[in-house]
Structure formats: structure tokens, C-alpha cells
Design a protein around this nucleic acid. Sequence first.
DNA 1: GCTTGCGTTGGAGTGCGCTCCAACTCCTAC
DNA 2: GTAGGAGTTGGAGCGCACTCCAACGCAAGC
Lengths: 130, 130
Amino acid sequence: MASEKPLPAETLTITEVADSTGLSPDTLRYYEKAGLISPIDRTAGGRRRYATTDLAWIEFLLRLRDTGMSIADMQHFAELRRAGTATVPDRLALLRDHRIRLDERIAHLQANGHALDDKIRHYEHLLGDA
Amino acid sequence: MASEKPLPAETLTITEVADSTGLSPDTLRYYEKAGLISPIDRTAGGRRRYATTDLAWIEFLLRLRDTGMSIADMQHFAELRRAGTATVPDRLALLRDHRIRLDERIAHLQANGHALDDKIRHYEHLLGDA
DNA sequence: GCTTGCGTTGGAGTGCGCTCCAACTCCTAC
DNA sequence: GTAGGAGTTGGAGCGCACTCCAACGCAAGC
């Protein structure tokens, strides 16, 4: 009853995933241990083989991370995902909320950017510079 | 020769500055120790009295921090400031550079925001939701 | 003068997000 | 079969930006 799948050719080693995502192998293992990524399929020898769906999920995680979501919140989201489609409304609500806070952050950054522009102009004026 | 200035009325205690900036008194002392803020005037009893110019500088620091500048880089900027007007060109160059990287970050956040919008639409579609 | 509370210091501790390490196994090429 | 490199684990360590603490000093009201 060996369930030895033929391991579809589109399978990636940890370094391949690392290279393609910009994460280090250590960070990939850390994310998996933390439950951000569900346990990755292994070869007979115990080595991780990432499926392209795993890769897509990691890229989504990176988007959440890069927009300021904490590990703890990503853990929560990943749990909901593992719990199945019944949690889609929850996940949608979380994403919408995150999206709103992202726009607020962007607006805040832009306002600060304008203040920096003023400061830059002030310095330029001091120098008679263009 | 006592240089006991009358301490212009527009002088603030550490908690007043904390309340007005949102920083904690501990953080204000930490910033001063770290050299982000030059030594603040003291009362006879050794208590800090912040001038409004100190407040303005702290608010500027917060703008740098909120736009992603590290403590180390703010230390550098503060050093240049203490070194006098000869460093204005350097400071201008740093600010311009920081400004450019800020715009890059904003663009990146916006791109990620659009990707999140796609994901949100995907979930909405799953639900037949508006 | 005494209490209450704000402020001071140096230094230790915290939370986050990794990052590194030792000791080991596995896989490939020769 | 052997050498070299890639991958595995649990756990320790790190850098950043604070945050907290104990022990003390000073100030204002009663």
C-alpha cells in the first residue's frame, strides 16, 4: 500500500523555493514550523518537495508580510485556510480589513513624504540650489 | 556669572513632550542617550525642559522613523546636524535619497494592494457576494 | 516636615522576525 | 565505496527598537 506518488515534475527543492521567493531556506523552515505553511510533502529521504501550489501560497504570504501583517496574524489566516472553505467569509473580512489599513498606511506615508519634500525645499533654499 | 536663563515659558516637561509626540518618556530618554536628540536643557534639579525647537526636531525625527529610517541612520543625520551648516549638502543628499526610497516603497505597497484586491475579488466571487 | 508623585540613572529584559549552529542524514558523481 | 554537497533537526543567538525596573532625588500641597 505504498502511496508513493510519482511526485509531479513541477516539484521544487527548498533552495529552489528560496531562490524564487527571496526567502532563505531557514526562513522557509521557520514559516513551516510556525504554521504559516502547512507541512510540505517529503521525499523518501525526508526532504521537502514544494508543489507549485505551495509556492503560490508562499508568495501570497509575502504579500501579506510586505504590507505589514505580523507573523501572528498570518498564522491566524493560515489556520482559517486549513479549516476549509467554511472560513472563506472570515478570511474575506480579514483581507478587507487589512486592505483598509494598508490604504491608511499609504496615505500616511504620502503625507510624510510631502512633509519631507518641504524639508528638502527648505534645504535647497538654504543652498540657493536647484 | 550664573547663566540662569529665565527658562522661556514655552518649555515642556518630558511627559508633556511624550503626550504631544506619542513617544513614551522612556523612549525620549533613549533617543537622547542614543544621540538622536542633543542633550536637553535641565532645571536646577536636573529635570529636562524641552524647548519648542526640541519638539520640532523630535517631530521631524518621527517623520523619518515613520517613513522607515533606522535609528542608526537617524543618528547619522543628527550628527550632521550638530556639525553645523557645512553639512547641509550632505543632509540634503540623504533626505533626497530617503525620499526616493520612500516613493519606491509606496509604489510597492500599492502594487501589493492591487494584488490583495484581486484576492479579495476572488473570495467575493467564491461567495457570490457583492 | 511629610507625603505623594514626577523625574532621574544605569542596566536588564522583551518581542519580533529571523539567522546560525552542530550533529547528523541523504543523494550524486566518480 | 567514498567524497562532497545539499538537506534535516532542535535549539541557541542576534539585531532592532524599545520597555521596564530598582533605587534614588526633587517639588508641591497640606
